[in-house]
C-alpha cells in the first residue's frame, strides 16, 4: 500500500447502476476520475449527463443504486451559462459565496474575470455580453469554488468554433490540477482535450485510447486523424 500524495486532490468517482423507470440506463458502471481531463462521449440518451449529475449530487430523475465519491466542493459548468440576468458579471461570479453564506472575495472575483479575458466588463450584465463572454463569466464563477473536481456538461457546444477553442484552452489552463469530467458529444473535442476518453455504450463504460502527450491536441498531432476515425466508428456503433 502506498501513501496517498497529500497534494493530490481528494478522489472522485462513481460505482453502481441506474434505471430510468424500469429501463436500465447503465449497470455495474465503475468510474474513477484520475487527475486531469476525462472525456465522456456517447450517443444521445446514453446517460452521460445523468452520470455527471449523479456525481455532482444533483437530482437526476433516475433510480440509482451505488456509491458516489465526490469532494464537498465541485466546479460545475453546464451548456447554458446559468447567469442571473439582473446581476453584474462580478456579482454572478461571487454568487456561490453568497449562496453558501461565506465571505465574498471581490478582489479574487475581479482577478478571475481578468484571467478569463473580461477585464473592464465586471459591471456588465449578461445581456450586455456575447455568448462566449457569458460562458467565460460562468467559467470564472466555477473557478471561484477552488474545487478539486470540475464537472463540465457540454459547456462548449453552444459556442462558435473560434470561441469554443478559446474557451477550451482557457478551461484547460485554469483547471490544471483538478480532476475534470467533460461530457461531450463531439469526438473532436474529446480527442483535443482528453487524457482519457470513455464511451458510454449500451449502459457500459468502454475506454478508448486517447492521444499521448499534453493537451490540447490538434489535427497536426501525429495519429490524430486515425484516432478520430476510430472514435467516430465506435461512436457510430454505440447504442443508447
Amino acid at each position: 500500500m502506498t501513501l496517498a500524495d497529500p497534494s493530490a486532490p481528494p478522489p472522485a468517482g462513481l460505482e453502481g447502476s441506474a434505471w430510468f423507470g424500469t429501463a436500465r440506463l447503465f449497470e455495474g458502471v465503475r468510474l474513477d476520475l484520475p487527475m486531469g481531463w476525462t472525456c465522456l462521449i456517447g450517443p444521445s440518451g446514453a446517460g452521460k449527463s445523468t452520470l455527471l449529475r449523479l456525481l455532482a449530487g444533483l437530482p437526476a430523475a433516475v433510480r440509482f443504486d451505488g456509491r458516489v465519491t465526490a469532494p464537498g466542493r465541485i466546479a460545475y459548468l453546464a451548456q447554458e451559462d446559468l447567469l442571473l440576468p439582473r446581476l453584474s458579471a462580478l456579482a454572478n461570479v461571487t454568487l456561490g459565496a453568497r449562496l453558501r453564506g461565506g465571505p465574498v472575495d471581490r478582489g479574487e472575483a475581479m482577478a478571475l474575470l481578468e484571467a478569463v479575458g473580461l477585464k473592464g466588463m465586471e459591471a456588465r450584465r449578461p445581456g450586455q455580453l456575447s455568448g462566449g463572454q457569458r460562458q467565460r463569466v460562468a467559467l470564472a464563477r466555477a473557478l471561484m469554488e477552488h474545487a478539486p473536481l470540475a464537472l463540465l456538461d457540454e459547456p462548449f457546444s453552444a459556442l462558435d468554433a473560434a470561441n469554443r477553442e478559446r474557451m477550451q484552452d482557457l478551461a484547460l489552463t485554469r483547471l490544471a490540477g483538478c480532476r475534470v469530467l467533460l461530457v461531450t458529444h463531439d469526438p473532436f473535442e474529446a480527442l483535443r482535450l482528453g487524457q482519457r476518453i470513455l464511451l458510454l455504450n449500451g449502459g457500459r463504460l468502454e475506454e478508448i485510447e486517447a492521444l499521448p502527450g499534453k493537451a490540447p491536441h490538434g489535427p497536426q498531432t501525429p495519429g490524430f486523424g486515425a484516432r478520430y476515425d476510430e472514435v467516430m466508428a465506435r461512436l457510430k456503433g454505440a447504442v443508447a
Binding site: A56, L58, Y76, A78, E80, L82, L95, G96, L99, R100
Partner: peptide, 11 residues
C-alpha cells in the same frame, strides 16, 4: 439549472 447552482453550494 439555476437551482442546481444552489444545490451545488448546499444553500
Amino acid at each position: 439549472g439555476m437551482l442546481d447552482l444552489g444545490r451545488l453550494a448546499r444553500a
